[in-house]
Nucleic acid binder design. Sequence first.
DNA 1: AAATGAATGTTATAATATAACATAATTAAT
DNA 2: ATTAATTATGTTATATTATAACATTCATTT
Lengths: 152, 152
Amino acid sequence: MRNCKDHKTCINEALIKAETICKQKGVKFTKLRKQVLKLIWKSHSYVKAYDLLEELKKIDSSAKPPTVYRSLDFLIDNGFIHKVQSLNAFVACTHPQEHKECYFLICKNCKSIEECCSEKISKVMNSEATRNNFNTNQVTLEISGICQECIN
Amino acid sequence: MRNCKDHKTCINEALIKAETICKQKGVKFTKLRKQVLKLIWKSHSYVKAYDLLEELKKIDSSAKPPTVYRSLDFLIDNGFIHKVQSLNAFVACTHPQEHKECYFLICKNCKSIEECCSEKISKVMNSEATRNNFNTNQVTLEISGICQECIN
DNA sequence: AAATGAATGTTATAATATAACATAATTAAT
DNA sequence: ATTAATTATGTTATATTATAACATTCATTT
């Protein structure tokens, strides 16, 4: 996302991918849901629900909080976006359907966010859960700090 | 916490420990802050800010949101409690000052929460951060699922 | 064409959190 | 000791995040 050459193409690919996945799953990728996903992708970073609502209002002035939150719920449930718990924000998923445990690197300086996957982390997580006899359902791993770009 | 024999003793020890640490640090463990910490410890689990406010009102009817949130901020800043991001809740820290990276096991069934530390996780976290040239400031790791007790 | 269920529209409000300014208490400086 | 400065708390108001509840529209099936 951060490193894409042409973000418009990148957005379109994401939307097409979502469309395809929805067809496969037999769920409806409605105009509204598509618009919301597009707006999230457009941001290049994480977005807040009410900022999204403002953007949506530019397209459809009758948009209201439930309009946004319902679409967000759909997009989360189907793996197209993630909620960033420590920021009360939402971010596009860069690899829907290929999903394992993943984590986020959040830069406090430039507000960028990077979604990362790591076999190692997944393994340690699993071993910790096992050690505690814990039946894991959902992992939230968010790392806040200063990114590569901003350190230099 | 979950396994303490006598929770009253356990709370008192925690309060005394907090008192000592505050003295060491030269910060003020005021009556209010102590009360809030006590209420959090009393819960045996995580607590929501406004539930805390209700409890506090029983002691001091003039308590208001900022009363609670300021104390929570103090307690977080000084490492006596943690915020559980995925629940918008707060939980007592079971080992203030000995703090490394730690994570939470949150049972969706019985609402228990367990604070765990693991060298392994810390190491993997560090190696991942290094690999991404990321300067970590704060790690949020919250694992939601079903606990040992509730599985059986 | 009617019935069903899913999605959206709409109103209202719940839940979480902070800003801003006033007052009180504590600590430091004179 | 008195004043000044700082820190903590009191108080009012409001910002931010999210959902409940019910009405309507739209798509799909019968």
